[in-house]
Design a protein around this nucleic acid. Structure first.
Lengths: 352, 352
DNA sequence: AGGTACTGTGGGAGCGCTCCCACAAGTGAT
DNA sequence: ATCACTTGTGGGAGCGCTCCCACAGTACCT
């Protein structure tokens, strides 16, 4: 029965484009043009359509649009880590803040996807294969992660937050880890320290390596020889910092400064120093990395290298949106790989 | 050009249902049945279709499915708080863990949506109006939040994690706050304490009120009269706990126990007690709520009421999926409102 | 033999949008 | 007046699915 031959059916009574068109006395195409902000519409028509949209409370059907236009208006922030780490590290929350801020300017929707274990990874692969997002933001990727290659194979635009190596093929955004490491060491040198130890981050993280490089070059350029016994590998955890500091102190009791590759590791190191009766900064100066909340609340407050993480998030979105916009014949891809590097800043506090 | 009259077009060369059907030598409908696990397919046909799916690497097009079936296979976890709180409170991370675990059994996708400020709230309203999710999980909702009503109006299935009041109309999952408050007080009474103070949570949070109720009833049932001067309102923050403890101590110097409405507030209270030279638990016994990481690491370790938050997340998903499944004529809605309450558990440590 | 029922299957008719071609109407040069 | 553009507009033809009706085939009763 019924006059209706489609409209007003299953979708829960929501108005459709067609209904808006009828109401405004124009064609379907014209309404579509107004909705999508095409300039090829006269002012009068536009006004009429907008009125009809408002009266009917029209909201476009995303599924129909996605089907017809072959895009989803959604991007995913993929975290190849268990939820736990995501929540415990301020890095992610800052990044998310920047991403969210930049994205709120657009119509894009952000999905947060964790891929910490095999099961989750398989789901993610399915998800990506179904092209349920227009692009992907990848944070905290280890050197041997296959995810970037999967993304490339599926031809899904992606931006990575820390390149996996100097030869990273994906578009990437990073802070200047080399410069950060360098400035930390230079600051300690300028303070008259000469036996400067370094607790590194996980060395399969490219950024951690770069910090070491910066530290080395700063010492060398100041005319010091780099004493390898003053370098000890950590793993970004507090326990790791604790362990490394213990070893360093045993090996080089004469050290007068420590540059830790993260604030959390600095906290671990501080505990050892205190237990051993070394005063900070009088006996040993301490510098961290990240300028996280820990740094401000530490006793004494910790000098630390600040990374513009929020800004990184914003830039990642910018780049990703660009990549999505000019998705064109695969030919021009990969040639002009883009790497953005943002400056770090040393925040000086009482620990040095 | 082209034999194709549709298939093999814009979608980036991904195989379609039709192509799978051709390959398997069956009709479109049959393939659809196999994909969706309908029992009305013969074993031989099913095998043939599955083979074709595997060979072609077929993955259903979500947009097309959503359009045709009027569902999205996605649900949203809506957090009406700024990101910051979300990250700083273990409550959310535990909840997310439970939710994720339960959801990984299904094909449903989880979206995390923050609605901490007006702008984000408007976006969320748009999002919900567009019916981009099949259901919503609501956590940490204040008494006067309009979100639940919006959801009801849009007829979107929703489950709330802490009811706004005893008269909550939405399906809800909660822990037994009354029982938790009661067990904390009973524990202190059993330990021979008689002047038991209580630092409450924000009283516009229903659960916080219920904890007070439990505390009151426990004292009353033990034959004590409730001294209102022993009750002071906090706000779930450490500073709030600090303030409240200061007032309580000034008002009732003879108190011999404190039940704080959260571990974080207990931490604030502990600091005051220590500064005032009260030994824990010798002079004053202390009990918290949440059994968070803080409780275990406090000095002395804090007795606390554990809520099964992960389990709550799982139950919320169960209920939501049910509601989505039997979405039927609005008539049967709202009548049988469902409230699940999970038991709490007192974890005894050295502070009491 | 006819009826009734159920099982398995094919394929038409949408879902609500975007894309794009066709075309009317206006503008200005020839 | 003619031609060549430009601007604005309508609507057909899909996008890849699900839903459901129709129907062939088989089985089991009368």
């Amino acid at each position: 029965m019924a006059t209706g031959h489609g409209a007003r059916s299953r979708s829960g009574g929501r108005p459709t484009l067609e209904e808006v068109a009828a109401r405004a006395g124009v064609g379907r195409g014209t309404v579509s043009r107004v909705i999508n902000g095409s300039p090829r519409v006269s002012d009068a028509t536009r006004a009429a359509v907008e009125a009809a949209v408002a009266e009917l409370g029209y909201v476009p059907n995303t599924a129909a649009r996605a089907l017809a236009a072959n895009r989803t208006d959604a991007i995913a922030l993929v975290v190849p880590e268990p939820e736990t780490r995501f929540f415990s590290e301020p890095y992610f929350s800052d990044m998310l803040k920047g991403v969210g801020a930049e994205l709120s300017e657009t119509e894009m929707q952000l999905l947060l996807i964790f891929a910490g274990n095999d099961r989750e990874r398989r789901r993610l692969a399915q998800y990506l294969a179904a092209h349920r997002v227009d692009g992907v933001l990848l944070v905290s990727v280890h050197a041997d992660d296959p995810l970037p290659d999967l993304l490339a194979q599926l031809e899904i635009p992606a931006v990575i937050s820390g390149p996996r190596s100097a030869a990273e093929t994906l578009t990437s955004v990073d802070s200047d880890n080399y410069g950060g490491g360098r400035s930390a060491a230079e600051h300690l040198l300028a303070g008259g320290r000469s036996r400067i130890a370094h607790i590194t981050g996980r060395l399969d993280v490219y950024g951690a390596q770069r910090r070491v490089d910066g530290y080395r070059d700063a010492l060398r350029d100041a005319g010091h020889e780099v004493d390898e016994r003053l370098i000890e590998a950590g793993d970004f955890t507090e326990e790791g910092g604790h362990r490394a500091m213990t070893k360093l102190l045993a090996r080089c009791p004469d050290l007068d400064a420590v540059f830790a590759g993260s604030d959390v590791m600095a906290a671990g190191a501080r505990q050892v120093l205190r237990e051993e009766g070394r005063r900070i900064p009088d006996d040993v100066a301490l510098v961290g990395y990240d300028d996280s909340a820990i740094a401000r609340h530490m006793d004494p407050p910790l000098t630390s290298v600040r990374q513009p993480i929020e800004e990184m998030g914003r830039r990642m979105i910018d780049l990703l949106l660009e990549e999505i916009a000019d998705r064109r014949p695969a030919v021009s891809r990969g040639l002009e790989r883009r790497q953005v590097v943002l400056a770090t800043e040393l925040v000086t506090r009482a620990s040095s």
